[in-house]
Design a protein around this nucleic acid. Structure first.
Lengths: 165, 165
DNA sequence: TATTGTTATACTCTATAACTATA
DNA sequence: TATAGTTATAGAGTATAACAATA
């Protein structure tokens, strides 16, 4: 039989998984400090960290939130449409919708005009949850941008939109 | 026995995997359009797409490039340091360094002071490759930010750095 | 022939937990 | 008792390729 062992996490926390430090002191980041792409990556890591911890109670991740928002705003979307809008493969959209459906937030309604397709819709629970979750996401977004004035946020959104054309 | 089948990709390309369209026409994005977090995600997808296609020939991904850059600039870094700087778990750093080592770009040198630890270093090939790759990454970064003036890039980097404090 | 949803499969990235050898 | 590197394992998330039903 296997010998009893003491779980490590009862003695001392594993040092992995602390908060991300964008600029560790005394480290030379070289060209990374001048790249727009790396600045975006640094920001993205911190934003993602805060999003996940803010919405852990609902088990809502960024792609799930985006999907709920898009489905709620656009009636009878097909799975293929959703995939294109989110920029993911159709097979990924199937998995995403499967998860939201098993959470009782989304349903697949048969299309009236195309017997291959479904129209996606929020359930009543989905609509209620989306309201709460949207409030939490907006609070999160305001928190991570808390340092910025409304004008600065406008400028930031505008500059980001012009990248990669 | 299994019947012969025609591979689909010889007939017509699978519609998945085209370019990401940040704003699909006639789609209501709801609150997503006002979120800083979603603006960053949209930008990140396009930047990542361009990075990967620009560096596919070297098999260099963004985390690999960051690691090479950091290792090249900071002598005798430990794996644990690298993990902290990049914001990943130590186990992830091991895999990352394994990949770079198998590509002949990085080596683990035994530490003089700590027999548990290694000091990471670029090989000669690693230094040469990093030069070429850095030029390609800078060209990529200039391309995705091509629309922006130097002043605007400065503003963008500054605003991104202030997020999530 | 092409498209819709689906499944199978695989690969990358990431994390947690545990282990070993040192410290 | 804690740390450095490692391994095993698992879970997201993603992609490609193929398929049946339908257009």
């Amino acid at each position: 039989m296997a010998p009893a062992r003491k779980p490590r996490d009862m003695l001392a926390p594993d040092p992995d998984g602390g908060h991300f430090e964008p600029h560790v002191p005394d480290v030379d980041y070289g060209v990374l400090d001048s790249l727009i792409g790396y600045a975006i990556r640094r920001a993205q890591i911190r934003v993602y960290e805060d999003f996940v911890s803010s919405l852990a109670a609902w088990h809502i991740t960024p792609p799930r939130f985006s999907a709920l928002q898009i489905i709620g705003r656009n009636a009878a979307l097909k799975l293929t449409d959703l995939a294109q809008i989110l920029g993911i493969a159709r097979s990924g959209a199937v998995l995403l919708v499967d998860a939201l459906e098993s959470m009782g937030l989304v349903e697949r309604l048969p299309s009236a005009t195309d017997r291959r397709a479904y129209g996606l819709a929020l359930t009543d629970a989905g609509r209620r949850t989306l309201e709460d979750v949207t409030a939490a996401v907006c609070a999160h977004d305001a928190r991570i941008a808390g340092d910025l004035s409304e004008e600065e946020r406008e400028v930031l959104r505008g500059l980001l939109e012009r990248l990669g054309r």
